[in-house]
Amino acid sequence: MTSPDLFNNHVAIQWCPGCPNFGILTAVKKALAGLGLKPHDVCLVSGIGQAAKLPHYLQCHFFNGLHGRAIPAALGIHAANPQLTTLVTTGEGDCYGEGGNHLLHAFRRNPHITVIVHNNEIYALTKGQGSPTTPAGEIRSLHVQGVEASPLNMLAVAVAHRCPFVARGFALDPDALTTLIMEAVQWPGLALVEVIQPCITWGRHPLDWYRERVRPIPQTHDPTDQEAALSLLLKEENRFMVGCFYKNDTRTLFGARFRQRFGDATLALSAFPSPERTLELLQEFRPAPCT
């Protein structure tokens, strides 16, 4: 266990004062410290949006790339250096909209990284348009008579594809969120943590409206039971249910075969192959020896 203060920096935060994103930031710092990690052990990867600015607000390595592209960048980083603890901080527009395809394929690949999705059900930075999780019927700036499309239920999609760790947290309960993120980071495989993050600027409800609705997953739920997890997630009335829905530690990890052969060492450039090694590979292109 290290101190969460280790992760503090002095960068001025651009979020709206009072934004629940601050609760997520606190939880990320506490979780990393709780796992005994130091800033240089951690690489945060993000795309674009308010959530994607999170890596700037704590001390660590970070790659703040393009809209929707956090997951492929994180895969590249993780492939090259699996010793880093790699997390993606993203919003639902970034991760489920612009980058949805990458998340689907991350379910297949199963890299040992944690994806934290700040879900405010809205495009906040571009001033209040509907997002992939906006409830149908909600009036938004580009949907003046209400959003027609249905919201994505990505946690159900994740469970359907046996994503190894699928959870939902609540930004206004940073302590519980800290515990969830700690478990997610440690879990061997892809962890998807969707966080209910009410938008205090463009949202339709006061924060208490969310506090009244958020409730834990029943203690009787067995998170290793895929069908039970799916059945919880498919019920509309459970959309404010928080905790870990699904856990699975049986799947092959991204890069397992490569790492079994070459170990966990970084692929960072340290030496060049000797000309002899290249010549050895070139032998294949020599004509068959004639005798």
Binding site: C43, V45, F63, G65, L66, R69, I71, P72, A73, A74, L75, G76, I77, H78, A79, A80, N81, L84, N101, H102, L104, H105, G255, F258, R261, F262, T266, L267, A268, L269, E280, L281
Partner: peptide
């Protein structure tokens, strides 16, 4: 195995280039 190159078939070219950038950022 001989070349020690991590090869990944990406889901699309956008992913491919961003994966390469991630790996390069990590020093490879």
């Amino acid at each position: 195995e001989k070349a020690g190159v991590f090869c990944e078939q990406a889901e699309d070219e956008i992913a491919a280039v961003n994966m390469a950038l991630g790996a390069s950022f990590a020093g490879a």
